[in-house]
């Protein structure tokens, strides 16, 4: 956006250097890409503030308030503890239970971001119609919320992990131990976030055109979870099933996440390659689709 100093400003005039905006037909939204990304960066506080305000609003009428960020994963863990360890009769040990927690919380991050993301553009109606700003900020804000909700779950995860690794008796079903390789869970988490951001952008766009996407989402994501290594280990899968998992976008990401975080194992290099490809591929597609359709959003609401 070129800026030109205007004529001497009148006393009390708001600005002495005036902004100049030129709106012309473009393939992307309104102005050049560089302008778009600069505005996105300048207005990043909007996304942060929106996410923070919405998180406060969800908990404002509850007795425990923000404590729910910890209570939710505790209750989830309790349900599965009951299911796996008590009802399941201990046939599956701590290894399985801790893997389940790690994978479940990671999958909830994806699920939560997709669900919230699908509502961002449609739910941002008035703001989208009345304010000129990079709409990408809305799904990014939903992403930020999802990550903020995920981080406290790590406390619960490591509470269980530490107990089994340090105090519980070791056995075939409890091989949990701390290891340096667990640090590789950080890049694995990075891939999960990149992939989730791509899916969030796709859902935000899809919901504008098909308002029943958010109705399908709970069922689609649940089926997706059962087809992914959440309730079982990646290495337990039958070879013929593993062949098809290359087409499951979240498979490799969850596999490297689970292997590094829970087992302290690097995992297969081919899994890492697949995880990187799916994460960045999905993000690129999500970004291109969102940007291509973004200029249409105000007339589709």
């Amino acid at each position: 956006m070129p800026t030109a100093p205007g004529p001497a400003a009148a006393p009390g005039a708001p600005a002495d250097v005036r902004e100049r905006h030129v709106y012309e037909p473009t393939s992307s939204r309104l102005t050049t890409d560089r302008h778009y990304w600069r505005e996105l960066w300048e207005r990043r506080h909007f996304a942060l503030e929106l996410s923070r305000a919405e998180m406060d609003a969800t908990h404002s009428n509850t007795a425990f308030g923000r404590l729910w960020l910890l209570l939710n994963p505790v209750l989830t863990a309790s349900v599965y503890f009951l299911l796996v360890v008590i009802i399941g009769g201990g046939r599956k040990g701590p290894d399985y239970f801790v893997h389940l927690l790690g994978a479940l919380f990671a999958f909830h991050l994806l699920q939560g971001a997709m669900t919230a993301g699908s509502q961002t553009i449609v739910g941002g109606g008035k703001l989208v119609l009345n304010t000129s700003f990079p709409l990408l900020l809305l799904p990014l804000s939903a992403m930020r919320t999802a990550v903020s909700k995920f981080l406290p779950t790590l406390i619960i995860f490591f509470a269980f992990f530490s107990y089994f690794a340090l105090f519980a008796p070791k056995s075939d079903a409890n091989t949990l131990h701390f290891s340096v390789v667990q640090l590789m869970a950080i890049p694995a988490f990075g891939l999960l976030v990149v992939f989730t951001a791509g899916m969030t952008l796709l859902m935000a766009t899809a919901q504008v055109y098909f308002r029943d996407v958010s109705n399908f989402l709970p069922y689609v994501t649940r089926m997706w979870m059962y087809l992914s290594p959440v309730l079982y280990f990646a290495w337990q899968m039958k070879p013929w099933m593993l062949k098809f998992e290359i087409f499951n976008p979240i498979f490799a990401i969850l596999a490297v996440w689970g292997e590094t975080l829970v087992r302290g194992d690097f995992g297969l290099p081919s899994w890492w390659l697949m995880a990187v490809a799916w994460a960045f591929g999905t993000f690129a597609i999500g970004l291109v689709v969102f940007r291509a359709k973004e200029r249409e959003f105000p007339v589709r609401l």
Partner: peptide, 24 residues
């Protein structure tokens, strides 16, 4: 306001714009 892009032609605006459109 820069919310909708032109299909043809051009709009040039000098200065910061604030919008108050009907929906509030």
């Amino acid at each position: 306001a820069g919310i909708l892009p032109p299909t043809k032609g051009r709009v040039e605006v000098v200065g910061r714009t604030s919008t108050l459109l009907s929906l509030g």
